[in-house]
Nucleic acid binder design. Sequence first.
DNA 1: TATTTATATGTCAATATTGACATGTTAACA
DNA 2: TGTTAACATGTCAATATTGACATATAAATA
Lengths: 184, 184
Amino acid sequence: MLKFILLGFLNYKPMTGYELKSMMDDSTMHFWHAYHSQIYTTLRKLEAEGLLDSVQEDGDDKLNRRTYTITGAGRDELTAWLDTTLTAQVAVKEDLLVRLFFSALRDKDAVLTELRLQRQLHEQKLEYYHNLSADSMNLLGDEAELELVAPQIPFWTATLRFGVGYEQMYLQWLDDTIQMIEEL
Amino acid sequence: MLKFILLGFLNYKPMTGYELKSMMDDSTMHFWHAYHSQIYTTLRKLEAEGLLDSVQEDGDDKLNRRTYTITGAGRDELTAWLDTTLTAQVAVKEDLLVRLFFSALRDKDAVLTELRLQRQLHEQKLEYYHNLSADSMNLLGDEAELELVAPQIPFWTATLRFGVGYEQMYLQWLDDTIQMIEEL
DNA sequence: TATTTATATGTCAATATTGACATGTTAACA
DNA sequence: TGTTAACATGTCAATATTGACATATAAATA
């Protein structure tokens, strides 16, 4: 999946690995994240496959920044993937629910402490999303042309709306669950 | 994580790989799933680590069923894990959102078709959960003692409630998103 | 000016997961 | 009785992901 995220971003404009990582942290991190180690290695792999080209910045760039550009083959791969239809449901994996499932074994107060801590984290995440909404649409930088950016906005907004819905649902569920355990 | 799910189930009672797989399909599949290939190999690994013991059924069992039992060390490992507190948020990974994020490139009708198909799948899942609620509490079989089963119920119910909440949120989001795209 | 923080790129071993291939038994049913 | 579906266990290669280790520059700040 990371492959297509990188192709998708590089289809907007050429970028370095660091820029791609930052962009993911600002936009896809609520439905897909990756460590820089995976990003750099995947970029190399995609270049080896001919889906990307890379150039080193001017010789006096001491940080060895390598700018990646999508190739024709890369664009074809991206659009071929987007032309398919996802027919399966993706399985959720939630560590906290595994722990809760077996929590009859646990000290009630320890479970409550854990759930309340998670509540804080999810509240922070929700707040973060609310702050994000405003400026997240400059994702491609100020100099990006409106023609490129404008059509993306409704789709970017929709994924962010998912993040907000998810956190709200999670908070509601945590509140219900905390109350249920308190009354046990 | 699979490790702790297997230890958790085997802490209820000894079981075979197949039984563990079936049990996961009936109970944890909405927050953690695994293929049988991973389950069988992980069971072997846990036995090698001394966290499980296994015995072959009576010699005339031609299916080579191997029944796993949790050891004292296994129980210690399980409770030690449950005694920790999860301090991080688990990152969501949702293929559909990756696709939607880059869907300005796509044919609008193709996107709508995909979202409507996903809507069907999530509706089926929700219906499945509603049917499950009734009998899912017999997870450990009819002969399981009430003392073992009763304390688990509120926790099992809570994870199922998460599944229902998730699907309801997802359906709402899909409806909103479908409408937004239709009006584009 | 010295220190800290942010920027920036990389490798690598270990682990986790997927999905295909392989095989045989038991139960149901036509 | 023959066929099909469900039951049951396993291997293995490929891929994906994690998380630690390693290193260096540039910018901000004390």
